[in-house]
């Protein structure tokens, strides 16, 4: 499976959701598509699924343009919050419909998962709560076993137990039936351990694409007395620096590959690893962050 974006731009009126995005995703992997709100994640996934067409540039999947492609449509499923099912069908009938539409759909697995999560199969999709709807959608996506499975913000509204169980099932399914899985989101709790690759979008552009572990290793959090943190930070590329307690500070720094960071622990400095979520947020944060915005807005009052 290969998904190829070449100089793809997507506009909604005057708003540009994607700007000349060039990205190649290949192989059976779990890939994280990360970015802040409005970064273009959902647009990219909808273009890959053939729901939207690019305003400019080319997208190719299985040798075809996904928009209006029966082949791509049959080998792809996009799970998102707005996913709609025939309104007159109960959940058990929707599963039967999915089984007819997707030859590899595992109805037994889907039913067992619904039972486990306490979702009654005689209910209508529209009757479910937000969390249950998203759980059902994700179960449908997992059980469809399409070569390209995409989840756009799949865990929204779910409680911690359901999130954790679904991610375990996703990993088990991936191991048993390898495929390309794209997971997009900005709340990565529990998801980031699954990623083999990460793609970071920012303002519709590609900011980073590479191995997830290597990306994470490129960031370090240092904390300690503010003067020492500032001194240490002056020698490296700082993405974020803020006060934690009076006289104490914390900084997220970017370390070039192959660089060794020496910290003098005697000065009270501590270095810890940075989660993927914190790393990409620091990478895409405006200079000064919210502290600067608040200070500027309330200055002189």
């Amino acid at each position: 499976m290969e998904v190829d974006f070449r100089n793809v731009t997507k506009k909604y009126g005057r708003t540009e959701a994607l700007r000349e995005l060039t990205l190649n995703l290949a192989g059976d992997k779990i890939i994280g598509i990360l970015g802040r709100n409005g970064a273009g994640k959902s647009s990219a996934l909808q273009i890959a699924a053939g729901h939207l067409k690019p305003s400019a540039g080319d997208v190719s999947m299985l040798g075809e343009n996904p928009f209006n492609s029966l082949l791509v449509s049959a080998n792809t499923i996009l799970v998102h919050e707005g996913m709609a099912f025939p309104p007159a069908l109960r959940l058990r009938a929707i599963l039967a419909e999915l089984e007819r539409a997707y030859p590899a759909f595992d109805k037994k697995l889907a039913k067992s998962l619904l039972d486990h999560f306490g979702i009654p199969d005689h209910a209508f999709h529209i009757q479910l709560s937000k969390g249950m709807k998203n759980t059902f959608n994700m179960v449908a996506g997992i059980a469809a076993r399409t070569p390209l499975t995409m989840f756009d913000e799949p865990l929204n509204g779910m409680d911690a137990g359901v999130r954790s169980d679904l991610l375990k099932v996703l990993l088990k399914e991936y191991i048993a039936h390898p495929r390309m899985i794209l997971l997009s989101g900005h709340q990565l709790e529990g998801m980031e351990e699954l990623f083999e690759e990460v793609v970071i979008l920012h303002h519709g552009r590609l900011l980073h694409h590479g191995n997830a572990d290597e990306f994470k290793e490129g960031f370090v959090r240092i904390s300690g007395p503010e003067s020492e943190v500032r001194r240490a930070a002056s020698e490296v590329q700082v993405l974020e620096l803020h006060e934690t307690l009076p006289g104490m500070a914390e900084a997220i720094i970017m370390v070039r590959p192959g660089t060794t960071l020496f910290m003098n622990e005697g000065l009270g400095l501590k270095s810890t690893s940075v989660s993927l979520g914190d790393a990409y947020v620091a990478m895409t944060r405006k200079k000064g962050g919210i502290d600067r915005v608040y200070a500027d807005a309330t200055d002189g009052r």
């Binding site: 499976m1 059976d28 299985l62 029966l70 082949l71 449509s73 049959a74 080998n75 997707y102 030859p103 590899a104 076993r145 399409t146 070569p147 039936h177 390898p178 495929r179 390309m180």
Partner: peptide, 8 residues
């Protein structure tokens, strides 16, 4: 390895 579906 995932198997492609050839739809008609």
């Amino acid at each position: 390895m995932s198997t492609l579906t050839q739809p008609t």
